[in-house]
Design a protein around this nucleic acid. Structure first.
Length: 243
DNA sequence: CGATTCCCCTGATAGC
DNA sequence: TGCTATCAGGGGAATC
């Protein structure tokens, strides 16, 4: 499912393909990302916004399918196909995209350690995994990467923020950057329906250490990867080396 | 306010 | 084999 690395991958690919083209007479000047939202900006200040949620796809020059929700046609005859099997995703045209800014916390790849410590301090009773996925707290991380980040940081997903020692906070912050960047480099994780703007699968699936690996051996310590439910969402972690 | 739970949808999977 | 029940998951709304 598209999280920050997947949406960022689509953004970079789309930017190369559509900046400078026109859509309904409006010139495209930028393709941005905020949290997991992809934003196409027009020269008049208006924007198209997309949220892919679980099964959304944005494919440049893709072929329409039964799951196609909309086809955007550019002035040169090329097109952008928006597919979504489960219909959770959405897109909308807005005169001004500034409104969404306040609904999100700092970008996961932009926050510094000092600021990260600072915002954590405001949520002492929260469980660390749901907090990492809270877009108002920090923007861009979802279920796959929160599991992978906490594994890399050796922190158990149910841990309350106030129990984390400075070393663990530092490790979480460091691995947010490391893992998201590595995932972007591999064009994201195609665990199920995700494909990039060119219709290709991402390559990061093979690097996942715990997500969807319930019952398998921990690649770090040989312990068994467990899966539990936290707030209705599955969380994967090594029962031996994540504390 | 913060923490938690429910719910939208539908293909895949488990269970019988 | 084939049918049915359950599951997954982002995030907004509702609830505690």
């Amino acid at each position: 499912m598209p999280e920050l690395p997947e949406v960022e991958t689509i953004r970079r690919q789309l930017r190369e393909k559509i900046v400078g083209k026109k859509l309904d007479g409006k010139k495209i000047v930028a393709v941005r990302r905020r949290a997991k939202i992809l934003i196409i900006d027009f020269s008049d200040g208006s924007s198209l916004m997309f949220h892919l949620k679980l099964t959304g796809q944005l494919i440049f020059n893709g072929e329409p399918s039964p799951y196609t929700r909309h086809v955007f046609k550019f002035d040169d005859g090329s097109r952008l196909v928006f597919n979504d099997i489960r219909k959770f995703g959405w897109w909308k045209y807005v005169k001004d995209s500034k409104d969404i800014e306040k609904t999100f916390g700092p970008e996961a790849l932009e926050i510094g350690l000092k600021d990260f410590k600072n915002i954590l301090g405001k949520r002492p009773n929260a469980k660390i995994k749901p907090l990492l996925m809270d877009q108002k707290f920090i923007a861009g991380i979802g279920n796959i990467y929160s599991d992978e980040i906490l594994f890399a940081a050796k922190v158990q997903p149910l841990r309350r923020v106030k129990t984390l020692i400075p070393k663990e906070v530092g490790a979480i912050w460091l691995n947010i950057g490391r893992i998201l960047k590595a995932a972007i480099k591999n064009r994201g994780t195609s665990e199920r329906d995700y494909i990039d703007a060119l219709g290709k699968k991402g390559d990061y699936l093979k690097y996942l250490k715990v997500y969807r690996r319930e019952g398998q051996k921990c690649p770090r310590c040989g312990g068994i990867v467990k899966r539990i439910k936290i707030g209705g969402r599955s969380a994967h972690f090594c029962s031996k080396c994540q504390r």
